[in-house]
Design a protein around this nucleic acid. Structure first.
Lengths: 205, 205
DNA sequence: GTCTATAGTGCGATAGAC
DNA sequence: GTCTATCGCACTATAGAC
C-alpha cells in the first residue's frame, strides 16, 4: 500500500510540477514574449526551482513551444468549441459572431496569446502553422460547411465568405482590443455583426 | 558660398547618421522584436558606434518608438497612399483590394512590421494607438467616405462595411503570410476579393 | 554556480570646419 | 587653435541561459 501510494504521489506530483511550470511559463511568456521572458522568472512564477524546470523541459524554446500548442487548443475550444450551428442563417450568424466576439473581448489571456503568437511567428514559423491548423482551419471549415448547406443564400464560394466572416471579427478584435483602438475608432460590435449578417443574407434576394 | 555649403554638409551628415541609425535599428527590431534586439547589434548594423546611437536617441525605448512611428507613416503611404478612389464601385473595390493585397504580400518588411507592432502592443499601448491613428483610421475613413458617396449601394452603415472590407483583407494577409498559413489554408486572393466585392455590390439589387 | 550578453557611461583620440 | 561630432574601447552592473 505504501508502495502504491508512493507511486501515485510520484506520478501526481510529477504531473503537478509540469502543470505548475506551464502555468508559470504562461504568465511570463504571455506578458513578456519569448525574448523578454527569463527562465528564472518562469521558475519563480511556477513556484519551482530552475533545475526542476530544466528537468521537465529541454530548454526555453521547448517549453515555449509546448505552451503555445497547448494554448492554441485551449483557446479554440473556449471560443469556437460549440457544436456546429443549425438553423436560420440570419439568426445563427448573428449569434455566432456575437458569442465569438464576446469570448475574445472578455478574455485578457486571449489578447496576450494573439500578441505573442503573431509577434513570434517570424521566429517560430512552424508554431504559427500549428496554430493555423489547430484554430483557424477548423473554424473556416465549420463555417464553410454551414454556409454550403444553405443553398438559399446563393453563395458561390462558401469558403471565401467564411473567411470574410472570420476576418471581419478577428480584425475588429485586433484593432479594438489588442491594439487598443477602442477610443480612436469606436464602433459597436452589434453594428458590425448586423451589417455583415445582412450583407450575406440579403444576397439571397 | 563656402558658408552655405558647410551648413548643408553639417546638416546632411547629422541627418545621415540619424538615418543610418534608424536603418540599422529597423533591421534589428523588425527581425528580433524589442526585447530580442541589443543596442550593440543596432550600432553594428547601422555602422556607427554605440555612443553615437546614444547621442541621437535617449535610450532603447526612445529609438524603438521613433522607428515604429516612422514605419507606420511609411507603410500607410506605400499601401494606401493613393488618391481617394472614384468610379464604378464594382471596379474600384476590386482594384483597391487587389492593389492593397499585392503591396502587402510583396513587402517582407511589412510582414515583419505587423509582427512587431502587434507583438509589442502589450508593452507599448500608446505606440499601437499611434499606428491605429496613422494607418487604420485614415483607411477606414477613406473607405467610409467612398461607400457613403454611392447611395446606389444602399449601405446603411458605411463605416461597418469599410471595416468588413479592411478586416477581410488584413486578416487574410495575416493568416496566409504573417502566420505562414498559405499551404495549410490555400486560397486565391482573387476569389476572396471577387466574393467580397459581389457581397457589397449585389446589395444594390 | 558559471559564464556570457547586454544596457548604459566615460574618456582619450581623431577628423573636419571655422 | 577651437569646437563639435564621432569613434573605439574599456568599464560597471545587471540579467539571464543552462
Amino acid at each position: 500500500m505504501a508502495h502504491i501510494k508512493v507511486d501515485a504521489v510520484d506520478r501526481d506530483s510529477s504531473v503537478d510540477k509540469v502543470e505548475q511550470i506551464l502555468s508559470g511559463a504562461m504568465q511570463e511568456f504571455l506578458k513578456h514574449g519569448f525574448a523578454g521572458t527569463s527562465m528564472d522568472k518562469v521558475a519563480v512564477a511556477a513556484g519551482v526551482s530552475k533545475a526542476t524546470v530544466y528537468s521537465h523541459f529541454q530548454d526555453k524554446e521547448g517549453l515555449f513551444k509546448v505552451l503555445i500548442e497547448r494554448l492554441a487548443r485551449k483557446k479554440f475550444n473556449s471560443i469556437f468549441g460549440t457544436e456546429p450551428p443549425e438553423g436560420e442563417p440570419a439568426i445563427v450568424l448573428r449569434q455566432l459572431g456575437t458569442k465569438a466576439l464576446q469570448q475574445m473581448v472578455s478574455d485578457e489571456e486571449h489578447r496576450a496569446f494573439m500578441r505573442v503568437l503573431i509577434g513570434e511567428s517570424g521566429r517560430f514559423p512552424e508554431l504559427a502553422q500549428v496554430c493555423v491548423r489547430a484554430m483557424i482551419k477548423p473554424v473556416v471549415e465549420t463555417l464553410t460547411h454551414y454556409l454550403a448547406s444553405h443553398p438559399e443564400l446563393k453563395i458561390t464560394d462558401p469558403e471565401a465568405v467564411a473567411r470574410i466572416l472570420l476576418g471581419t471579427l478577428v480584425h475588429f478584435h485586433i484593432v479594438q482590443d489588442v491594439m487598443h483602438g477602442k477610443d480612436i475608432l469606436p464602433m459597436a460590435s452589434d453594428h458590425l455583426i448586423d451589417t455583415m449578417t445582412n450583407l450575406i443574407v440579403s444576397n439571397a434576394n
